Every structure is written in structure tokens, then in C-alpha cells.
Amino acid sequence: MDDFRTSELGAFLRARREQLPPAEPSEGAPPSRRRTPGTRRSEVAARAKISVEWYTRLEQGRGGHPSTQVLDTICDALQLQPGEREHAFLLAYGSGGVLYEDLSASAQSHLQRLVDQLAPWPAYIKSPSWDVLVWNTPAARVLTDYAALAPAERNVLRILFLHADSRRRIKDWEGEAKRTVATFRTELVRWGDRSARATTLIRELTQASEEFRTIWKLNEVGQLGEGEKTLLLHDGTFATMRYESLSLDAYRGLGLVTYTPDQP
């Protein structure tokens, strides 16, 4: 396992441990003082039947390559949910395949036809690092006028954290911010995106946005999936829409996001 994955796995396990409530003290035992939140490393190691020393090195990025069986027991000990467990295994063992680099003219044209055919409902296609690559006219009208932005700025996270208008236009901005960052982290690992553009995005958002920096440190994972979002429209009214996020098998790592009315 390379140094990057080792470090990221250790940070993720530590974050999940610190979110796990500490074990209840046994009856009659004196209360203990804790210097850090959550469950102790010794408690996790005992549940996973591994040494505290080795588990400590693993969290510190010095533990080497855990076997699938050992990692499975650690996930059990940390009470990880299915998505979190998948994330831990992807951090440990990586993701195969090659991501797209740049869309060819024919691919761009094909994907543009795809989102155009979904009108009158907003739709766009994004990369694992949430660059908006293709969008239709309703998306530009309801979500963001992507054509008015420089290509490097057509990124959902940049818009969400660096454009002040997004806080006004998204009713539950805080919830949307946490959900988007959790999905972003998951997709970078799932698709093995270690591109310079993804690294630069994380660095610049960390430097420019205190909100992003705080949420990123939580080391949470998730997926966009489907749900509802309430947006302020240009006429001053709010509209609640259902969104769906779908993977495009023909374009590894790309995702289609669509919006439809909440009520038929």
C-alpha cells in the first residue's frame, strides 16, 4: 500500500473512532479521564483482536498493509456503515481502471445531446471532483449559469463554498455543504482520482473557506443518491425539486445529475 493510501486510511479510521461513543464503564469501575473524544484505540484493538501498538501505527499511517480479514474486523469494531466500510477498503486496496482525462469532441457532443433531451428539467454531467462538464439550458437557468464562468470555475464545490450567492439560493445550505463534501470524498476514492486538478481543488478550498476546512476535517463519506433540494428561483419564489445522481458506465467516473419537480 503506498504512502498516500496508508495515510488516508489511518486518518479515516481515526476520524471514525473519534465519532464512536466510548464504551460504558463496568459496574463499580472508577470514571476515567479522556484526553481525546470517542472510543480509545485500546478498545478498538480489543474488539478487533489485534495489538494496540499495531492499530496505533495503522492510524498514524505506519501500520503497513492490513489483510482483508483484519480490516474487516477493524470495520466491525468501529461499527462502520456499509458506505464507510467500502470507503475503508477502497483506501486500503485502491480502485482499478482509468478515469477519463478530457472528453473528446464526439463524447462531448453525445453527452450534450443526452442532457438536452432531458429538458425541460435541469441536468448536468460531472466528474469525480465535481467539475461540471456538460449541462442543459434548464440547469443554467435554475442552478448556475455555467457558461458565464471560466472553465476552471465550473465546479459544484467552488460554487457552493466560494460564491456567496449560493447560501442565499439554497435553503438548507449547511446540509447541502456536508452532503456534497462527503460525496466528493467518497467519489475521489471510489474512482481513484488523484489528478492535479482534484488536489488543487482541495488545497484551494481549504485555504479559502473555513466552512469547507471544518467539514473536510470530519472525514465523513456519503453519496448523493437521490433526495430533495429547495432552491430560490430568479423570480423570487422557492421551488423544491427531486434530484437523482446516476453513474455513466461508458464514461468511468462521470455522473449524471437530474432535477425533476417534487410533485407530479
Rank of each mutant, 00 (worst) to 15 (best):
T186R: 00
A48N: 03
E211L: 06
D193T: 00
R5P: 02
R242Q: 15
P22F: 14
Q207N: 05
L160W: 08
H65C: 13
D172T: 03
R33K: 15
R179V: 03
R185P: 02
R57H: 15
E53R: 13
S109P: 02
R185D: 01
A239S: 10
A45S: 13
F12E: 04
A11N: 10
L201R: 00
G227M: 05
F212N: 02
L256G: 11
G192Y: 09
T144R: 11
P22C: 14
T36N: 11
R62E: 11
Y55G: 08
L99V: 05
A139H: 01
T240D: 07
T68I: 05
L90C: 08
K49D: 15
T180F: 00
E176F: 04
E204S: 09
A46K: 07
L58K: 01
P37R: 12
L111D: 09
R141K: 13
D165K: 03
L13I: 01
R40F: 15
L205C: 03
E211P: 02
T137S: 09
L218K: 06
D193W: 00
T68E: 04
E59L: 08
D145K: 07
Q81A: 15
E59V: 13
P21T: 04
V221S: 01
T56N: 11
P21F: 05
G96Y: 04
A152N: 00
R190H: 02
T230L: 04
A48S: 09
F4W: 06
Y100G: 12
L256S: 12
T258M: 11
F4C: 01
F212Q: 07
G253E: 07
R35S: 14
G94Q: 05
A88M: 03
